[in-house]
Write a protein that binds this DNA or RNA. Structure first.
Lengths: 241, 241
DNA sequence: GGTCCAGCGTGACATTGTCACCGACAGGAG
DNA sequence: CTCCTGTCGGTGACAATGTCACGCTGGACC
């Protein structure tokens, strides 16, 4: 799987002024800011920048220092591990109203980023520089609480990834993915076997075999780059093993 | 694998007064306390309690609320996930000078503990109540920095567990364990195949097969409950695959 | 001695990972 | 339109791992 590097062009789509519309959008997604005192709120908006990134660009590579903490207004990012042999596992996804914890973590202990991150869709957000992140932690209770929440909630979610990878069969984990889509009301997925494999940390061949089996049992119908979920009940039943 | 529940007897080995000797011991292991102001230091020692726990007792079970945060003076704790089928993976170990991050995490977001924890050796330490942990975070810069360091450093270590479980062969991971022992100067391990399996998240049979293979290749010699590391060079070489 | 049990060995089979290679399809270039 | 090229998916063979069932052994205890 290959991702475009973040280009200068993409970086240039940034503006320094935060519009009132953007502030309103931010406040609904990051309610913590409302509880801060007016002083901090102004400091915050003055210090952060609005950015837009296209889909499929690499945000942070293994071993890099993190240059910015990004708070997402829209879109989704994926953080994953890459093995020397080229296999992947996704550790977690970042949605609107969240920020990348690993960035926060490696900003806090000055370490390097222990994984890779890419945009899965076009992404909009505010970025904050590492020194601000650190300073505000010590000074602003609301900001501190926000960062803490990020760290501790991700810890639990990454632990559940360990659990899945170590204990669960791959067909069950694929069924789980499908069940999540069904829960969102989607009965048709635009996804390749290779992408599913990268998600669950397996290889394409294994995913293909299992999907073929699903298709024979009538759970799904597959075509190039697309999967129809045809038997919701059976999928949900399998996913709960 | 079965662990004794923490009994009332064990709990009663607590005292409220912290001796000057214990304070000195604490300060060498947790240097952050030295940088705090005198006011906080007194508050801290007045609020925490000294505890001793025997080896092999369960500290925290899956889904429980955490009653205390423990800062270890001595001994080692193990935090692990347990599958419905009875398999285990250890997530990390806690040594002197550290504290259980998961406890910290679930204290901070009031969640429940997403794993199990046991003492692997007799353990001594100071315990702090959840409300103190939370209050100090907001008020004491040094304490805050300490807790933050715990969270963010564990995040990276748990991610490396994901990586190992998802990508590495089990023989390589066993060799890694052995290489770590060799680095500590230990050429003889008192450990059962089942314990090794719980560590790397596999099953006893698989570990037995691989150890038999190691023995045939002259890397180790096995006897009941014990493993001699006889070919350090080959072990280190295999561990670095 | 005899009993019990934790620790370990093992064969048979299911699942998963890896490698090599293939064909099918889509989107452009000519 | 045909041809080319890269992506997508299928497949067979084999290695590694997980699971199940069972049996053996050494040591503790009566």
């Amino acid at each position: 799987m290959h991702y475009t590097r973040l280009s200068i062009n993409a970086k240039q789509r940034m503006g320094n002024m935060i519009s009132t519309h953007q502030r309103a959008e931010f406040e609904t997604l990051f309610p913590f800011i409302r509880q801060a005192d007016a002083d901090f709120i102004e400091k915050f908006y003055a210090s952060c920048r609005y950015v837009e990134l296209p889909s499929g660009v690499s945000i942070c590579d293994e071993g890099q220092q993190c240059s910015q903490l990004t708070l997402l207004l829209d879109g989704v990012g994926r953080v994953y591990k890459l093995s020397p042999a080229g296999r992947e596992v996704t550790l977690y996804r970042i949605h609107a109203g969240e920020a990348c914890v690993l960035t926060a973590s490696c900003i806090m202990n000055q370490g390097s980023f222990p994984a890779m991150a890419v945009t899965e869709t076009p992404v909009r957000g505010f970025t904050v520089s590492p020194d601000k992140v650190r300073n505000w932690i010590c000074q602003e209770a609301q900001w501190q609480r926000f960062i803490f929440g990020l760290l501790s909630s991700r810890l639990a979610s990454i632990i559940s990834v360990v659990e899945e990878v170590a204990f669960k069969r791959i067909d069950v984990r694929l069924a789980q993915k499908f069940a999540l889509s069904l829960a969102r009301g989607e009965t048709s997925l635009q996804v390749t076997h290779a992408e599913l494999a990268a998600d669950v940390g397996s290889s394409r061949e294994v995913v293909s075999r299992i999907l073929k089996d699903f298709a024979m049992r009538g759970l799904i119908e597959t075509s190039r780059g697309q999967i129809e979920l045809t038997d919701a009940e059976a999928i949900v039943h399998l996913s709960s093993q």
